[in-house]
Simulated scan of single mutants.
Amino acid sequence: MREAAFVKQNKDKWLKFENVITNKSQIHPDELSSLYIEVTDHLSYAQTFYPQSKTLEYLNHIASQSHQIIYKTKKESSKRFITFFTEEFPLLMYQYQKQLLIAFLTFLLFTIIGAYSAAHDGTFVRSILGDGYVNMTLDNIDQGDPMRVYKEQGELNMFLGITINNIRVALYAFIYGILFSIGSLYIIMQNAIMLGSFQYFFFEQGLGWESVRTIWIHGTIEISVIIIAGCAGMVVGNSILFPGTYTRLVSFKRGVKNGLKIVISTIPFFIIAGFLEGFVTRHTEMPDWLAILIIGGSLILIIFYYVIYPRQQHKKELLKHMNTPEIPTF
């Protein structure tokens, strides 16, 4: 649709909405909420088809002005929790695929660096993992049970401890994004180097496959969501560095809100990872096919929800707008 036709078709709604938020006219909260949703849909459409236009600048302005008013008056649907995960978040996540890719490549790079350093420096693993952990693991290997560390605590205590710790790491990765994204990349780097040296240590002991089939039962989701939390931190950092058509303050507030939504989306996955580590990983006697099934299923779940599904939802949203009949220009 041409920009002039788009403006002509929707300008009455925009003017009505602007009048409400500027003059604080009385309007039913549900009607105001509906207008807000339409305006933000139009903003998304303008960002796609009319970048750098006056229309986009205007919609940015009224959408940001209205945000606080809407969330003071909007009646939350009883299905809000479900629609957040099935509709709102996937569309949001589509906007940040680039940051997710950068976070993943950073993690991959420093994992390789960690493994390489462990292979060429005999003291590197101990400096990263600590003498206590390395000595304990070597003792477990000598006793014929290299993965005994996953069996020493009770299931429930381990589940709770691991879940809380993982959420804490994710929050650090998010909050440190305020340091112009560098803080989030640093958290990713720390965890990646630790993983690379940790995994190399087991390969060096001739326990490569056993470590992979055991550790990655919970590690597939655990590591993935740490990367995603790092992506959330980069959303915050980039909102400061690249405000676009927003003022820097408005961009920062928007970045914090969107980054926090990404972090919230990871909480169910951290719970799943904690459950797997507390209740499943300890069963090292399970057959290889079952371990592979859990690892593969976890990987597919993460890739689908954070990469494939957002693309599907974005395509559906574009088709919805493109099917609108074109109005002649004025």
Rank of each mutant, 00 (worst) to 15 (best):
E76C: 02
M234D: 00
Y176T: 15
S78K: 11
G122L: 14
K151M: 11
P243A: 06
T111D: 07
F49V: 11
K316L: 01
V280D: 02
T83D: 13
A4D: 15
S78M: 08
I82A: 10
T284W: 05
K8P: 09
Y150G: 03
I264T: 04
F49L: 14
L318D: 05
I82T: 13
F180Y: 12
V39C: 06
E155R: 10
G177S: 05
Q26I: 12
D41F: 03
M136Q: 15
L318P: 02
G230Q: 04
Q52A: 13
N166Y: 06
F304I: 00
M234Q: 11
P90F: 04
Y36F: 14
H321C: 05
G230I: 05
V125R: 07
L92Y: 01
G132R: 01
S33T: 13
E18C: 06
G278N: 07
E155F: 11
M158K: 01
A63Q: 01
M194E: 02
I102D: 06
V280A: 05
L241P: 00
T329D: 15
F81H: 06
Q65P: 04
T137D: 09
V250F: 02
V7A: 08
S184I: 09
L179V: 15
Y246T: 13
K13F: 01
R80G: 14
L129S: 01
R213H: 13
W209F: 15
F202W: 05
I327Y: 03
E152L: 15
G208I: 06
I193V: 15
F107V: 14
D12L: 02
K16M: 08
V225C: 10
K315G: 11
